[in-house]
Each structure stands twice: as structure tokens, then as C-alpha cells.
Nucleic acid binder design. Structure first.
Length: 544
DNA sequence: AAAACTACCAACCGCCCAGCG
DNA sequence: GCGCTGGGCGGTTGGTAGTTT
């Protein structure tokens, strides 16, 4: 590609390049010099290589001075590091490398440079691009991003590592330590499960944001399935999209609150809104001020300690993975965090929602819900009653949604009529909340999901029962993310995204395996379906 | 066969951070 | 504390190749 392009440029640009270099050579300080951007030509490469041979690496800004190369130092550095330095390994990644990348990503998250250190001849950028492509490809194929054995290994290592102290709550760990305990996420997840009767895998038992975030991220994909180091110094890297504290002004144009602004307690509420019991009584810790840094999503750590600053999420290139259950095969559900950012950062999501909730980009919430539902159902067989009639769900579900029935029609257009289940209940809630969150605040308080926090502001600030903030919890499900998860299921339904979505949404309603089975039936015929739903057993097994 | 579309990928850019003087 | 430099990472761009119409 580039080579080709460069070759072409070599034919076209040399005069320009060489001429410019010659003319300007030695006058780097001149304001008239305009550094070149874009693809490198072979001539430029030669110049740079010669320079490095003579002067060695480093001091890249001097390259232009010494060679007249019209490239900035950084460009020279990148060119050298990514393309010109010796021992670079070109070509497709080998299976061994792929596996290693998966393992490393499970441990490190999106620490491409660190991963590259383990892959001689490969660059961070190369790995990143590969991974991002992998995410798309595998998710599209309905395959788990991480090999099962990698996940298991991660889990084992994590558990082993955490037994020595756990990481939760300590985001000041040295990166190396984090790396060594890179699987703490899993550990935390499962510890949490154990401690909490395994009811709500999402709910971090501790106020460890990273744990929570990673749990949400799950084992799904790249960042979605990455066992990102729970914490790292990089929480500082919170950048753009810092969302100020929640207030009405933060509602988007659709009247939806960005998930980021929702307090952690929402998860409980959300779970309850689906007829789920309050997953956990996290105790004081649950109310601990937690700022779920969205940065978790991209592997950047997160801070497990409470923070009072707005946080921004950093997502990998593929921030809108077309999640499919297959990717869950060995992992916890994908994180809601991604969905949140996606929603916030991607205007297309809004439009998509408006156009029918068919966005392929947001599935985190549904994944989470599905995961919850399955976990819940597996842990509580009695919940299977719900699954028999999803649309009606349990009285609790009904009760939760009943308040929202008023808005049911609003979502009819979005609900797939084919759906035999109560997917509409979710939709109803979504619409209801969306339409009149304030009015429902009191009604539904305590009935919203739990564990679906994407990005949290300081809980102490955000979560104030009976306050406006409480509304936010309800609004969790109003997020388009929640409705836009169809892509996960696209793998099974093929063309029927809407249908698939509806079914899955139903499943997410705590309907459990029965519905999962139904869904499986619906998606039958595709090799993906079994894999997708294999997740349930896998997740259960892991939880167990 | 050709156009249109899509997926993939290499490469680059911008922002940020850490280290150093 | 400030500026410089190197480095990391997310996101984007644009070309190529494959597929579909």
C-alpha cells in the first residue's frame, strides 16, 4: 500500500523532495521551511537511514538539521521505528504472535508499546492495527477475541495474583506490578461473584473502578475483553470528553443523559428494574465515591479510588465493536463503558437510535444485561419462570416496567414484532425514562439497573437518593447504547438485527437460559449461535 | 466486465505524558 | 516552574484488495 504509494511518489515527488531538501538544506531554522507530511518516499527513507547510521537513534529533531529532510523529528522517529529500523518483521502475524498478542492484551490492555516489547520486530502501531482489525473481524465472525485458554489462564493467574492482596482500590500500583497482576480483573470479578452469591457479576464488590470497568468490559473483545490492568498511572490520561458533573444540562439532545454521568448505584436500580433483586449489598463500599474512569475501556487503567474529577473515556480505535455473544465465549460481558463513550462521542449513535436503534456500535449494555440475566438465571433457577414468558417477566419486572408502559407505544417502532418476549419492556423503560425521566424518578427509583455504570462521577456527588441524580440511574436504560446492541446478535440472525436485538433484549431481562435457549433457537442455523450461547455455560463455569 | 461497495491495513497526526536539564 | 525531547496511544486518513451488484 504505502510502499506502492511511496513508489509512486518517488517517481513524482523526488524533484520536489530533493530539490526542496537541497535548497533548504542547512537552513532548518528558516521560517520558510515547511515540513513535509504524508507518506514517506524511498528517498526520504534513505536519507533517514543514512542519518541513523551515522548518528544513531535519538535526537530526531536534528535529522532535519543535518540532512535537510523536510520532516519533523517525530515523523522521523516514527518512520524509523515503524518501518526503517532493522529487525523489523513485516508481514502477517504468525499464529504464535497472535496468541501472544491476545495474551498480552489480556494482561496489559491497550498497552501497545509494552506489548511490542514482547514481540520482537513488531511495532506498537502494528500491533494496535492488528488488534483493532482483529476486533472487527472476530466480532463480525462471532468469535471470542481471546482464546478460551487465554481467558482461563488469565483467570487463574489473576486469582493467584490477587490472593496475595488484590488490587482493588489501589490504583497506585506500580505498572510492573499491575502487569504482573494483570488478571486481577478476573479475580475481582469472580471474587465479587463469590462474595455476592454470584448473582451480579457486574457489581464490583469493591469500589474498584477498574475491576468494575473490566468486568463490564468483560472478556469480550480487545478492550472489551481485555483484562486491563485495573489501575495504572495512566488514569491521568483522561482527556477530552470529560463530562462535567451531571445536571440537566448534560442531557443530550434526545433528552438522554450520558451514561457517563450516571452514578454507580444505578446498576442496582437497573437490575431491579428488570425484576432482578438488588444484586448486592455492596455496603458502604458500594457507595464509596467511585469515578469509573472510562479510560478503562481502552486498557488505560482506571482508577479504583474515588475521584472527583470528570473523567473521559479513551477507547481504542474500535470503539464500537460489533459485539456478539460469540465474543463472550470466554469472557464476561462487554463493558458498558464503551457504549457510553460511544454514545457520547458518536453523534451517529443518536441518529441511529432515532432511525431505528440499529446501530451496530453499541451493545455494551445489552451484553451486560445478558450476562447478568444469564448469571442470575443460572444462580436462581426459579427465575426461569420469568423466561417462560419474557414479556411479562416477573411481577417485579412487570412492576418495574409497568410504570413505563405508558410509553410503550413510543418504542413500538423499534421493537421487533417478531419478538415473542418482552423485549419491549426494556424498550418501554427506555422510552419511558427517556420521555419522562423526571416524572418517573420516584416511581422507579431503586428499580433501575445495577452494574451498568459506564462512567461515573463521584458517587457522593452524583448519587443522591431522591435527588435529580437518581433520575440518572433510570436513564441508564434510556441510552441508545442499550438499544443499539443489535450487532452482537447480527451474527446469529443474519439479516434480522432488529429481531435479534429484540430477542436479546428480552434475554437481558433476566430471563435467563430459557430465553437464551429461545434465542439460540432463533439464531439456529448459524455456527455462531452455539458459540454465542456457549458463552452462558462458559460464563457460568467461570463464575462457578 | 465494470461500477459500487466494503473491509482491511499502513501510515500519519494530534494530544498527552514523562523525563531531563 | 518551564521548555524541550522522546515516547505512547487514540483516532483518522487514504490506498488497496476483495466482494457484490
Amino acid at each position: 500500500m504505502r510502499r506502492t504509494k511511496n513508489n509512486i511518489e518517488d517517481e513524482v515527488l523526488p524533484n520536489d523532495q530533493t530539490g526542496g531538501q537541497l535548497n533548504d538544506e542547512g537552513y532548518e531554522g528558516s521560517a520558510s521551511i515547511v515540513l513535509k507530511k504524508g507518506p514517506w518516499t524511498s528517498t526520504e527513507d534513505d536519507i533517514l537511514v543514512d542519518y541513523v547510521k551515522k548518528h544513531g537513534e535519538g535526537n530526531w529533531n536534528a535529522v532535519q538539521k543535518h540532512t535537510g529532510l523536510l520532516r519533523c523529528g517525530k515523523s522521523c522517529r516514527l518512520r524509523w521505528a515503524n518501518h526503517l529500523r532493522p529487525n523489523l518483521k513485516k508481514g502477517a502475524f504468525t499464529e504464535e504472535e497472535e496468541r501472544l498478542i491476545a495474551e498480552l492484551h489480556a494482561k496489559m490492555g491497550n498497552k501497545w508499546a509494552r506489548m511490542a516489547a514482547h514481540l520482537p520486530g513488531r511495532t506498537d502501531n502494528e500491533i494496535k492495527n492488528y488488534w483493532n482489525t482483529r476486533i472487527k473481524r472476530r466480532q463480525r465472525a462471532g468469535l471470542p477475541l481471546y482464546p478460551p485458554d487465554v481467558c482461563l489462564q488469565a483467570l487463574q493467574e489473576n486469582q493467584h495474583g490477587q490472593s496475595s492482596g488484590g488490587l482493588s482500590g489501589d490504583n497506585k500500583m506500580h505498572p510492573d506490578f499491575l502487569q504482573n497482576t494483570s488478571y486481577e480483573i478476573h479475580d475481582s470479578i469472580f471474587d465479587s461473584l463469590k462474595d455476592n452469591q454470584g448473582i451480579m457479576p457486574y457489581l464490583p464488590e469493591l469500589s474498584d473502578v477498574s475491576v468494575y470497568g473490566n468486568m463490564l468490559k468483560g472478556l469480550d473483545s480487545s478492550q472489551y475483553c481485555s483484562f486491563v490492568p485495573p489501575s495504572s498511572p495512566e488514569h491521568k490520561r483522561l482527556r477530552e470528553s470529560t463530562i462535567p458533573f451531571i445536571d440537566s444540562s448534560n442531557m443530550n439532545r434526545n433528552g438522554l443523559y450520558p451514561f457517563d454521568q450516571i452514578g454507580e448505584n444505578n446498576s442496582d436500580d437497573i437490575a431491579q428494574s428488570f425484576g432482578m433483586p438488588a444484586p448486592l449489598d455492596p455496603g458502604p463500599s458500594s457507595h464509596s465515591s467511585i469515578c469509573y474512569s472510562h479510560s478503562l475501556s481502552n486498557g488505560n487503567s482506571s482508577t479504583s479510588k474515588p475521584t472527583y474529577e470528570a473523567v473521559k473515556s479513551e477507547l481504542p480505535s474500535l470503539q464500537y465493536p460489533e459485539l456478539d455473544l460469540g465474543s463472550w465465549g470466554t469472557s464476561p460481558p462487554p463493558s458498558l463503558l464503551e457504549s457510553v463513550d460511544d454514545f457520547i462521542q458518536s453523534p451517529t449513535l443518536i441518529s441511529t437510535l432515532e432511525s431505528g436503534c440499529s446501530s451496530p456500535q453499541n451493545s455494551g449494555l445489552l451484553d451486560a444485561l445478558l450476562y447478568q440475566a444469564r448469571t442470575l438465571s443460572s444462580s436462581k433457577n426459579h427465575c426461569s419462570d420469568k423466561s417462560s414468558n419474557s414479556s411479562t417477566a416477573t411481577p417485579g419486572d412487570r412492576a418495574d416496567s409497568s410504570a413505563l408502559n405508558v410509553y410503550e407505544t413510543e418504542w413500538e417502532d423499534y421493537a421487533d414484532p417478531v419478538s415473542p418476549f418482552g423485549a419491549t419492556s426494556i424498550l418501554n423503560e427506555c422510552s419511558a425514562l427517556n420521555a419522562n425521566a423526571n416524572s418517573l424518578d420516584k416511581q422507579l427509583s431503586g428499580q433501575t439497573f445495577n452494574g451498568n455504570i459506564l462512567k461515573l462521577e463521584s458517587v457522593e456527588e452524583v448519587w443522591t437518593p431522591n435527588s435529580e441524580n437518581q433520575i440518572l440511574s433510570l436513564l441508564n436504560i434510556t441510552r441508545p447504547d442499550f438499544l443499539l446492541a443489535s450487532d452482537w446478535y447480527d451474527l446469529g440472525s443474519g439479516h434480522g438485527k432488529d429481531q435479534a436485538f429484540t430477542l436479546d433484549a428480552t434475554t437481558s431481562l433476566g430471563l435467563g437460559d430459557d430465553l437464551a435457549t429461545d434465542h439460540k433457537h432463533v439464531t439456529a442455523g448459524t455456527s455462531k449461535s452455539s458459540e454465542v450461547w456457549g458463552f452462558g455455560s462458559c460464563a457460568t463455569a467461570m463464575i462457578g
